[in-house]
Simulated assay, not measured.
Amino acid sequence: MTLSKRASWFLIVVGVWTWAIWPNFLKNIWKDDRSWDDGPTGFFTVHLVLTATSLAIGSVVGWLGIRGARAGRTAVPGAASSDHMVSSGR
Rank of each mutant, 00 (worst) to 15 (best):
M1Q: 14
T2R: 05
T2W: 00
T2M: 02
T2Y: 00
L3D: 01
L3I: 00
S4Y: 10
K5N: 07
K5E: 12
K5P: 01
R6Q: 13
A7N: 03
S8I: 01
S8T: 01
W9L: 07
F10A: 15
F10M: 14
F10V: 15
L11K: 05
L11T: 05
I12P: 07
I12L: 10
W17A: 14
T18R: 01
A20Q: 02
A20M: 03
W22Q: 11
W22Y: 11
W22A: 10
W22I: 06
P23W: 04
N24W: 08
N24G: 11
F25L: 10
K27E: 15
N28Q: 13
N28L: 11
I29V: 15
W30G: 11
D32H: 05
D32W: 03
D33P: 01
D33H: 03
D33V: 03
R34E: 12
W36V: 14
D38E: 15
G39W: 06
G39N: 06
P40G: 14
P40R: 14
P40F: 11
T41N: 10
T41M: 08
T41A: 09
G42L: 14
G42H: 15
F43V: 11
T45N: 15
L48Y: 12
L48T: 07
L50V: 12
A52S: 14
T53L: 13
S54H: 12
L55K: 10
L55C: 12
A56S: 11
A56C: 08
I57A: 15
G58R: 05
G58V: 02
G58N: 05
S59I: 01
V60Q: 05
G62H: 00
W63T: 11
L64R: 06
G65C: 00
G65M: 00
I66V: 13
I66P: 01
I66F: 08
R67H: 15
R67Q: 15
G72M: 04
G72W: 01
R73Y: 10
R73A: 09
T74P: 00
A75N: 02
A75D: 02
P77L: 07
G78A: 07
G78T: 02
A79C: 01
A80Y: 03
S81M: 02
S81A: 07
S81P: 02
S82G: 06
S82Q: 08
D83I: 10
M85L: 09
M85Y: 05
S87P: 01
S88R: 03
G89E: 00
R90P: 00
R90I: 01
R90C: 04
